[in-house]
């Protein structure tokens, strides 16, 4: 399975990618929502996107809204991975179409358990 990790912080991308790779995912990375949308349009094999909220150019919330507007991506699971920890923000992301939500900081187990909930453990 193939995953897309979207975060403007290289360190954060590496942290999430390492966990996904440890259970056998192929990982592609993007620095913002616009770049991620471009990748998603070209690569139909991506099954899950791990999405940071606060990024330049296009933030994660806008990305989720745009992805969910397109029927083409309805099978793609969207997991917010963010420092935004207010209940109102979580509700906003879920309303926009995010499937799961991880509040930073997280441990490896958090990511692995979220993937399992979504039926994405290899």
């Amino acid at each position: 399975m193939r995953a897309l990790v979207i975060d403007d912080s290289r360190a954060a991308r590496m942290a999430v990618s390492r966990i996904l790779k440890s259970i056998g995912f192929d990982v592609v990375e993007a620095e913002n929502g616009e770049q991620a949308l471009d990748i998603l349009n070209k690569d139909e094999t991506i099954t899950v996107a791990m999405v940071d909220w606060n990024m330049p150019i296009m933030n994660g919330y806008e990305f989720v809204k745009l992805v969910r507007r397109s029927d083409k991506f309805r099978e793609v699971m969207l997991v917010m991975v963010t420092t935004e920890n207010e209940m109102s923000q979580v509700v906003k992301a879920l309303s926009a179409g995010a499937n799961e939500y991880v509040m930073k900081p997280f441990t490896d187990e958090v990511i692995l358990e979220k993937l399992e909930m979504l039926g994405l453990r290899l």
Partner: peptide, 20 residues
């Protein structure tokens, strides 16, 4: 705490059964 509710709990259930 935040880490504990991150562990294993679907976010939809967090929203439904917890207050912040």
């Amino acid at each position: 705490n935040q880490l504990e509710v991150n562990r294993g709990l679907p976010v939809s259930l967090l929203m439904k059964y917890f207050k912040q």
